[in-house]
Computed example of a mutant assay.
Amino acid sequence: MPITRSAFQRYRLIDEVISRYPRQYSKQRLFELCREQYGIRSLSSLEKDIQRLREDHDAPIAYDKRKNGYYYTDPQFRLLRLMLSPDDMEALDYAREVLTATQGASVAGELANALQKVRQSLDIIREVKTEGLTRRVVYVEEKILGGNRHYVPMLIRAVNQNRQIEFRYSKHDSPEPDPKLRTLHPILLREVGDSWYVIGYDENTGKERTFALDRMIGLELLPDQCAIPPAVLTSVSELFEHIYGITDSSGPVEEIVLSFTPLFGRYVKAKPIHQTQEVLSDTDTECVVRLRLAPNRDLLMHLRSYGENLKVLKPASLVQDMKESLAATLAGY
């Protein structure tokens, strides 16, 4: 049965007092606190709240007559402990491990504290009856997340422990009925467009390789330690400074000059294409920006998304790639 916001606030206060100060708050003292903060008018109201907590939320509330105070018979109990599904818990652990790897232990620690608070409050918050809202006021885009995201914590552990990984891999462009088993020395992970990739050293080819997690099958951590040549480590560390997206580029870093219509120029200034972006000119007729990138397939696909609002000025090789790509598109109509 849904509860009101005011009842939720009282329940939260009662739970906090009993859990933090067991056997220290008498009925009268707890009533006075609830009256002061939430305006309850009688002891019977407090008694009803406590009875409701016992019956509806299985709160093991007891009263110590000798010490004249409420306490939980189960010290680990928290009224608002989460009613999470295994998927919910996996998602929270995933977030914590990713934060540990990407933002450092201090940020992950803050998340752990926040998650503890969430674990203590989410189930009753889900029951709270929102008062006064008659329509939805926030809309967010539903994202289609890349598959095998549960591999991310495993891969983070592999990198941190310097362990090799083993998996089968199915390519989009040449699917195999029985993908071969691969071994990789993982170096880092990268998230692009809600999909995850692992970049590592392939001992068979002697080069760095990139694999999408959504195409990996049967990922396993091996006991074998990684042996990555220093030159490969340096190359991978610098790889994404001048790459858009995830696909490798066989060419050098070049000066890419793009001309946008004034309207789309404002969009690109507000949300730059890449960290190397510079505005060369911004007039009533066009906005010209410069990037320093190694052209690749991901960049070409992104530039095409601007349609008639973009003209590639430099380099000549990228201009030609755009022409050929657009011509191939038109040939299909």
Rank of each mutant, 00 (worst) to 15 (best):
I246R: 04
H242T: 13
P262W: 06
L188C: 04
T329E: 12
K48D: 00
D321M: 10
K311Q: 13
V140R: 14
S45T: 13
G39H: 02
D194C: 07
F240M: 02
Q28D: 13
L82H: 05
Q51S: 12
K269S: 07
D194F: 14
E36A: 07
R135Q: 15
E191N: 13
C287A: 07
D15R: 03
D49Q: 00
Y11E: 00
V159E: 03
E131S: 07
C226L: 03
H172R: 12
E255A: 14
N68K: 14
D248L: 11
A212S: 10
R136F: 05
R266V: 15
V232G: 03
F31E: 00
A114M: 04
N113A: 12
V268Q: 02
L80Y: 02
I199S: 05
I217R: 11
T183E: 14
L233T: 08
G193T: 10
S42L: 04
H302I: 02
G193M: 06
E36Y: 03
L188W: 02
E90A: 14
I217A: 08
L43R: 02
S6H: 06
E127K: 13
R290N: 00
I50C: 03
L213G: 08
G146Y: 06
A227Q: 15
L189V: 12
S281E: 10
A231D: 13
F260A: 01
I243P: 00
E55L: 11
Y63P: 01
